[in-house]
Amino acid sequence: MSITTNPPPEPPKLKPQTEASKKPFGSRWLGQLVLLGPAGIWLLLLLVVPTLVILELSLVADIRPGDVVNPDGFANYLRAFAPLNLTVIGRSISFALGTTIGCLILGFPVAYWIALQAPKKWRNLLLLGFILPLWTSSLLRSYAWITILRRTGVLNSIIGIIGIPPLELMNEPPAVLIGMTYSFLPYMVLILYASLEKLDRRLLEASADLGATPPETFLRVTVPQVFPGIAAGGLLVFITSLGDFINPELLGGASSMTVARLIYNQFLGQTPNWGFGSALSTLLILLVSIAIALLLKYGDRDAKV
C-alpha cells in the first residue's frame, strides 16, 4: 500500500520527515553513514574485495598458492570453454533446471493447498513442518537418500513386496535430482506460499462468474497473479542448486562431475590451479547474475500488471 491511497496523512507519521528535511545536509549524511556504514564495510571487505580478487586471479594462467599475481590474459576462460568443461557446466545447469522444475511441480500444489485451502490455524504449523528438515545437516539428508535409493534399500524393499523389479536409481542422475529436489523444495514452497497468500480471490470468483472453467481460471487468472512468486522461487532454487556440491557427489555415481566439484578440485585437489578455479567461479557468478537480472526484469513487470 502506498501513502497516496491512505486517508488524510496522519501528522505524527509525516513529522519526522519534515524535521529531517530541515536538517543540514551534512548531519543527514552522517546519520546515513552511521546506519549503513557497518553493513557497507562488511559488504565491501567480505564480498566486493574477494570477488575482485577472484576476478583478478582468473586472469592469471596456471597460478598456484604462493605465486605472484600478474594478470596476463584470458587463457583460463578459453580453457573453461573447452568441450570437456562445457560438458561439466552443462551437467550442472541441467541438474539445476531439473531440480527447479521438480520443485515447482511438487511445491505448487502444496503451497496452493496451504495458502488457500488448509484451515487457517494449521497454516503456520504446516509451513513449519516443511522447514523442519532444513534444521538437519544437508550431508545427513543426502546420506538418508542413499539408504532409501540403493539397490537393496528402503524403496526397492517396498516395491519388491508388490512385485515390481528393483529400480537402479542410485548412482544415476535421477538420484541426484531426487536428492536436490528434496533439499530445495522448502524454499520453493515458502516463496510460493507468500505469493499465493496474497492472491485476490475476488478475481477467481469473477472469472468463474464470467464462465471460465476451473483450468482456464487457473491458467489465466491464478498463474499470472503468482508469476512473480514462481519466478522468484524458481530462480532461488536454480541458483542454489547450481552450486550444490553434496548431492551430485554422494548420489550421482561415476559420471557426476559438476562445476562446484570442478572448482573444488582446482583449490583442494591434487593439482591445484587457482587461476582456472577462479575463472570457473567467475563464470558461475555470471550465470547467477544473468538469472537475477531476468528475475528483476520479468518478476517486476508482471507484479505491476
Binding site: 570437456l84 561439466v88 557426476s256 570442478l262
Partner: peptide, 18 residues
Amino acid sequence: PTEVGEAFDLYWTRLTSG
C-alpha cells in the same frame, strides 16, 4: 612434475565427467 600432474588431472576430469 606440474605438466604430468596436469595430465593426470585432465584425464581424471574426463573420466569422472564423461
